[in-house]
Design a binder for these strands. Structure first.
Length: 112
DNA sequence: TATTTGACGATTT
DNA sequence: CAAATCGCCAAAT
């Protein structure tokens, strides 16, 4: 099981309506490099195998984006899943945090 | 085995 | 507020 595989596993566990950051996913996957996460996800681009569209950067913003028909596509998907976008291309911090704190956090989780 | 590179992150200019 | 810079770490070649 390579790190990449674990990354997929983690991302695949991101609940609907929520997003995680590369850094968080990385740590959850047991690595200290967010970059590896992105690289691993890049291989997926389609979003079929893994819901990579639920992964955003530390600023809660969607990646430069190339899959999902561009950033707009990804954003649209997330919105449909319940993720709130205050500003175009930027998910609310409310949507973040889930695997970030190793499990469920009451703060925002219940707020959804 | 070594080198390159990168869907990032944090900081600074 | 946006762009540039440096740092980190592991995967891919």
């Amino acid at each position: 099981m390579t790190v990449t595989q674990r990354i997929y596993a983690v991302v695949a566990r991101i609940p609907r309506g929520r997003v995680a950051t590369y850094g968080d996913v990385a740590r959850r996957a047991g690595i200290r490099s967010p970059r590896v996460v992105g690289n691993a996800l890049h291989k997926n681009t389609d979003g079929k195998a893994v819901p990579c569209h639920r992964v955003v950067n530390a600023q809660g913003r969607v990646a430069p984006a190339f899959a999902f028909g561009g950033p707009k596509g990804q954003e649209a998907l997330l919105r449909k899943e319940g993720v709130i976008f205050t500003r175009p291309g930027t998910a609310t911090r409310l949507a973040l945090v889930d695997l970030a704190h190793s499990g469920s956090r009451s703060t925002i989780s219940s707020n959804l």
